[in-house]
């Protein structure tokens, strides 16, 4: 029998597992995404490669944009168009109950409104000079918008809005079904959050490398 001195509240480190691994991975992945998206968002170049528009620049709201979605802002705006829209996905991720867990523990993109523009961009990504086709970029953009839609649909707040606010579901079968479905999705919210974050960055990087001429886009366009 031997003794080791220790205080009541200030005991020495007792954890013997790899407790530091999860926060380290979160810092590395989230940090990499934040730094990359800052670079990509401010670069104001290589964000469009026919027919693909980077999700970090969608919807493109300036007249000076290489591929304007909705040119609400005149040609006086010479800065990156991404600056005008970054606040919305950023606010969505920062206030997300899941990311709050992650960044509170370790040390942050995609509101539903923007999803409409991203779905529109995917439809355009099937259009190769007036012909229907599928490129690797189309597949990436489709994966990106599906993941972002899943991330939004699995949101805790949406689950509350579709029925979680009720005390009794009796006689409210539609809201009960929607709430049950939102519950099923919500249980997987963390996976949607991470997958959508990584794929949105990869989609931008892929379009950037195409636009810079580093990569060429494998495509299948019938009749060409």
């Amino acid at each position: 029998m031997s003794t080791i001195a220790a205080g009541v509240r200030h005991r020495p480190q007792e954890r013997k597992d790899l407790w530091w691994l999860e926060p380290t991975v979160i810092v590395v992945v989230l940090g990499t995404f934040v730094l990359y998206s800052m670079y990509a968002g401010l670069a104001n170049a290589n964000y469009f490669f026919e027919p693909y528009l980077s999700p970090l620049y969608s919807p493109c709201l300036t007249a000076n944009c290489v591929h304007p979605t909705l040119p609400l802002i005149g040609s006086y705006w010479n800065l990156s168009p991404a600056i005008l829209i970054v606040a919305f996905p950023l606010a969505f991720r920062v206030t997300c109950y899941y990311y709050r867990r992650s960044y509170y523990r370790a040390f942050f993109w995609s509101p539903p409104a923007l999803l409409i523009f991203l779905w529109w961009d995917v439809i355009l990504a099937f259009n190769f000079g007036g012909r229907f086709g599928i490129g690797l970029g189309t597949v990436l953009m489709l994966a990106n918008v599906i993941l972002l839609s899943g991330y939004s649909a699995s949101c805790h707040s949406l689950r509350y809005l579709v029925g979680g606010y009720l005390d009794s579901f009796h006689g409210k079968s539609l809201r009960y079904r929607l709430w049950s479905w939102a519950n099923w999705l919500n249980a997987r919210h963390a996976r949607w959050a991470w997958a959508s974050l990584i794929v949105v960055g990869l989609t931008d990087l892929y379009i950037r490398l195409l636009s810079m001429g580093v990569l060429s886009d494998p495509r299948w366009v019938p009749g060409t």
Binding site: M1, S2, T3, I4, A5, A6, G7, V8, R11
Partner: peptide
């Protein structure tokens, strides 16, 4: 409440 220590037992 005044303090303590880890005691090893085998």
């Amino acid at each position: 409440a005044n303090g303590g220590e880890f005691v090893e037992f085998r």
